[in-house]
Design a protein around this nucleic acid. Structure first.
Lengths: 126, 126
DNA sequence: CCGTATCCTCTACGATACTG
DNA sequence: CAGTATCGTAGAGGATACGG
């Protein structure tokens, strides 16, 4: 399948689309949350799954593969029985931590904001 | 139509999904870039359009409406002929500036990284 | 335990044409 | 200038079952 555009340069994106580049990597329904949980350290497949209620095995696999391709995380295979696989942010992925953290915090305060004063569409006429 | 879920709380998201909340607002193919350009100040419809090659009128309208609903920008209608409409970040929207800026910068350096050393899938065996 | 393989749905996004 | 209105499509995301 491959839910992600090809590297390098993400064909279709032009110079100046750096914001979109980041969105491609961190965006979508699951990648942000996955990355967020990996901040705490290496996690196994099912550990991630348990931390993200609602995600299916298929989706988790796909998103992890995308993140691997993007080069932000490593997949560690332990040769044991039962099989064990770990996922962890690599050096490049760790540079995402401030961003992910900021997204988490902004989302938190936005939600607080919402319950405090519901948004009313503001169309200003001048 | 409405490409965005309902407020408040973005039905379907549970507590702890703050990262996803943020992704919902700045994510998608265009919202990040739109917000990025609005950092420089109020812009008119066609000014934004010219700054974002490839976006269609329809898409720009839809995304701007979503951002309005999210409560991060104001729409300013000037009663003139020809009609003039401006879009600007409001107080809440301005709190997004550090985030958007960070996304831009991360995207920039990621692209530099790419050309320096292409990503090779790293599956570590231990 | 950690995945793939199918199949299916839904919606984000796009092309194009038209309007106050 | 700043938009709607229609129609069409690709692919993101989901349900379920099976496999090393």
């Amino acid at each position: 399948m491959d839910t992600q555009v090809n590297q390098p340069g993400f064909a279709g994106l032009r110079t100046g689309d750096s914001v979109e580049t980041t969105v491609h990597i961190v965006g979508g329904k699951w990648k942000g949350v996955i990355l967020y949980h990996l901040i705490e350290g290496e996690l196994r497949f099912n550990q991630i799954r348990r931390r993200i209620p609602g995600i299916t095995q298929r989706m988790l696999t796909l998103q992890l593969r995308d993140l691997e391709k993007s080069g932000v995380l490593d997949r560690v295979v332990y040769q044991e029985t039962p099989p064990r696989v770990g996922y962890r942010l690599n050096a490049l992925g760790r540079t995402l931590i401030p961003l992910i953290t900021m997204m988490k915090e902004w989302g938190d305060s936005y939600r607080g904001q919402l319950s405090a004063e519901p948004i009313q569409p503001s169309v200003l006429v001048e």
